[in-house]
Design a protein around this nucleic acid. Structure first.
Lengths: 162, 162
DNA sequence: CGGAATAACTTGATGCTTCAAGTAATTGCT
DNA sequence: AGCAATTACTTGAAGCATCAAGTTATTCCG
């Protein structure tokens, strides 16, 4: 900062810079690999992957959004494009006619199956191959803690009353 | 995945999900805070912050891009907007007339100074307040390792020849 | 039962990012 | 010196994300 008070300790500074670096660079790295190898964006891959694991390869839009940490609006646009391309189909849910369920098509399934290996390899290459078992443990713990505090969308968490 | 082979171990899965969650959610959380409190995006804040720390509050576009993990193109667009708004000024570098140097204006400086406290508070709130000293240490280490492997833009790092 | 409130999306506009291409200045080679 | 290659950016177009507003369906409750 321009100002006096050192707002983060040196340790925190270093952690912060590295973390932001990851946050800024990782999506691009993954997107490029996916785009190049499979013509998919990261969220599209995520959608296909989640559907492929779901019972009947079908999920409600809202669930799909939650699973991908996406807003409903964003997912709706994405689903439009994917439907155009024939990767998924949507129909209104019979039990709740406000809701919309998306299902994998055969083409969609074929796409994920084809895309997965290279993607996983990239993930390994970028993350897990670099870590010792201890570091993996530490990552799992720390990432979970941070992630938990990021949920849509609590402001300052209510002070712990013990 | 839809397929047989469990491509990541359970531990890795959990780490991966949490990490992606962070990567997806953190930028939005920071952007919203900055936008709301100061009318800045994260990269705009980053530009102002880096300039404010630089000697003579001046940096070349390429340095500014590197410091913010941004492409030159992106930075160029951002700088255009910021120049319109009077937060920075640009002029060609005298030593190398291909290069362009950006400087903070007084208005720009005022902006960072005003924006910094709330932003730092948010960062603390989202990250550091949640971590024990040990976890901070672990984060620093792990994040640095991962970050290092993300640098523009090495493919598979050449196998370590000892 | 009937209207208000809420839920589950979709749509359109706006703005930012990225990508490809372009320009201008400098270096490097011979 | 002179031409090619490289560096440092800028620009314009295309695609995505986000935000606000709009639909349609369901629930709540008096």
């Amino acid at each position: 900062m321009a100002t006096q008070e050192r707002w983060l300790t040196d340790d925190e500074q270093r952690a912060w810079r590295a973390l932001i670096g990851i946050v800024v660079l990782l999506p691009g790295a993954l997107d490029r690999q996916l785009e190049r190898d499979s013509g998919l964006s990261q969220i599209e891959y995520g959608v296909l992957a989640m559907l492929s694991e779901a019972p009947d390869q079908t999920l409600r839009m809202s669930q799909l959004a939650a699973l991908n940490d996406s807003s409903l609006s964003r997912l709706s646009h994405v689903a439009n494009r994917m439907e155009q391309r024939g990767l998924i189909v949507r129909r209104t849910c019979p039990e709740d006619r406000r809701a919309n369920i998306a299902s994998l098509t055969e083409a969609g399934l074929a796409q994920v199956v084809a895309a997965a290996p290279a993607h996983v390899t990239k993930v390994r290459e970028l993350i897990f191959d670099k870590l010792t078992p201890t570091q993996l443990e530490n990552l799992t713990e720390v990432a979970a803690v941070i992630r938990a505090g990021l949920d849509p969308d609590k402001g300052p968490p209510p002070p712990q009353v013990e």
